[in-house]
């Protein structure tokens, strides 16, 4: 009779399906396939695909690699905390540390050049949120995530933390320059 009663026709699986209903089902099915194909297509033809290259690491190992780049390419420091501003040559590997409650160091990159960004956290999980681009990536401790980035616009960017990381979470914001 109705949806709260057993089907009135015992052999309900043999009842014909309404034409308009079938039309909709076919449209929905095709749309589902289009959306599935879209993600694959973007891997072949799109320019924004998050790399999955990942290594296990330790806090010490990652911090040492980050320190080496900072020691080599620091051009100046900023804020009272003397955060190093690092300008590595295009194509190099750069290591961004996420920790309570800072992104370290500040990078100065060149427009249109590709860099290999390594992300890892020193304590809790953090959220890499590049603003105003609005690119958002999860950052784990003990995992090193390797992503090739090519900045396509000059300016001063902020890196906001958008994974809850304790009481000082709202103070965790860093900077990044593209020249």
């Amino acid at each position: 009779m109705s949806a709260i009663l057993p089907p009135s026709e015992r052999i309900w699986w043999n009842q014909p399906v309404d034409k308009l209903e079938l039309t909709w089902i076919s449209i929905a099915f095709v749309w589902a396939l289009v959306m599935f194909g879209m993600m694959i297509w973007w891997h072949a033809y799109g320019n924004q695909n998050l790399a999955n290259e990942t290594y296990r690491t330790t806090k010490e190992m990652f911090a040492a690699k980050a320190q080496a780049v900072v020691d080599k390419y620091t051009v100046r420091t900023e804020t009272e905390l003397q955060v190093p501003v690092v300008a590595p040559p295009p194509g190099s590997d750069i290591y961004l540390i996420a920790r309570l409650w800072a992104w370290w160091p500040i990078f100065e990159l060149e427009h249109g050049k590709t860099y290999t960004l390594h992300l890892s956290a020193m304590d809790y999980m953090h959220g890499f949120s590049l603003q105003p681009q609005n690119i958002n990536i999860q950052v784990h401790p003990n995992y090193e995530h390797v992503i090739k980035i090519t900045p396509n616009a000059r300016g001063t960017y902020s890196i906001v933390c958008n994974e809850f990381c304790g009481i000082g979470h709202h103070t965790m914001a860093g900077r990044l320059y593209v020249k």
Binding site: T79, V83, Q131, N134, N162, H169, H170
Partner: peptide, 24 residues
């Protein structure tokens, strides 16, 4: 969220942050 504002975030003005970001 389309403009990037974080979830689970106490203060979008980043009070006390050395390098605050200013949302539009």
């Amino acid at each position: 969220g389309t403009l990037g504002v974080s979830r689970r975030h106490w203060d979008m003005a980043f009070a006390g942050a050395p390098m605050a970001y200013e949302w539009p």
